[in-house]
């Protein structure tokens, strides 16, 4: 083995093996233990539906609020320290333990918080709004960071050129910036979506079970459902559902790679 292979090739192969082996082992064993049947389990499908719809709504909210925010950070709309401060603020939930994020959201909307009064008693605890808010809270920093990088790479000359042609900011944003960043928006959306799908810590606090009739009557979010199965019925029961979740994550990863290759 030459020096280059030893320094670069070996660690990369080792790392790939460390990451790949548990995934393959789990997929194989969960397949042998009824993973496919979990896709016919009505209560698990309802859990999946809850998680997927919450993640989708949260990720769409990321697009609506996160895209302008990422643009303002990338183009230095806020000057000097304010820009740095806002960037730190918008990305800080990435460093907060997610259980802490869940408690923070819970307390913010609880009766002891002034927000509760302003919202006229609207509760997020164990509701679809709660799970969506938790997903949004943990995924929007990822969306903003990813979009900010893409906007920074986007040629500012195109915007300046359009400005000099007399175009308003709204026209430039909707006709030039957004269409040219379409792939980046989809990619960042999927990142935020995947992050939401894997969230466990904050929803354990905020929406362990969701009661938002008529769609969701005491439905567990998918990761909580898997955890419950593991806790109450043992490893093999949890395994088939965990395998199904893993399969969905792999499909997402393949879609993400496909989009990246099209760029």
């Amino acid at each position: 083995m030459n020096q280059k292979n030893f320094i670069l090739g070996l660690p990369t192969l080792l790392l790939s093996t460390i990451l790949l082996v548990p995934i393959v082992v789990m997929l194989v064993i969960s397949l042998e233990n009824g993973m496919i049947s979990s896709f016919f389990d009505k209560s698990f499908l309802l859990s999946l539906f809850l998680t997927i719809s919450g993640a989708t709504v949260a990720s769409l909210a990321c697009i609506i609020l996160g895209t302008p925010a990422a643009y303002s950070l990338a183009r230095g709309y806020f000057k000097g320290r304010m820009n740095t401060l806002l960037e730190a603020l918008l990305t800080s939930p990435m460093t907060i333990p997610h259980v802490v994020a869940g408690i923070a959201l819970l307390i913010t909307f609880s009766p002891i918080s002034p927000i509760h009064g302003i919202l006229n008693g609207f509760t997020i605890y164990q509701s679809f709004a709660g799970i969506t808010l938790a997903y949004f809270f943990v995924s929007v920093p990822i969306y903003v960071s990813s979009m900010k990088e893409s906007i920074e790479r986007f040629d500012v000359k195109l915007e300046l050129s359009a400005q000099s042609l007399g175009a308003s900011f709204g026209r430039i944003f909707s006709r030039i910036v957004v269409p040219n960043l379409r792939t980046a928006i989809v990619e960042s959306f999927l990142l935020a979506w995947a992050r939401s799908m894997s969230e466990f810590g904050s929803i354990l606090i905020l929406a362990y079970v969701v009661f938002s009739p008529p769609l969701f009557n005491y439905v567990y979010p998918a990761p909580v459902y898997v955890w419950n199965q593991y806790e109450t019925s043992g490893l093999f029961s949890g395994l088939k559902y965990a395998g199904a979740l893993l399969l969905i994550s792999i499909v997402m990863l393949i879609i993400l790679e496909g989009i990246k290759r099209r760029r």
């Binding site: 195109l158 300046l160 050129s161 400005q163 007399g166 175009a167 040219n180 379409r182």
Partner: peptide, 20 residues
């Protein structure tokens, strides 16, 4: 004045056609 209000059209030395 902001750029869009100056009526000063600019052609860059590098390509700046809108690719979309």
């Amino acid at each position: 004045l902001p750029t869009d209000k100056r009526s000063a059209a600019f052609v860059f030395s590098e390509p700046a056609l809108f690719p979309n």
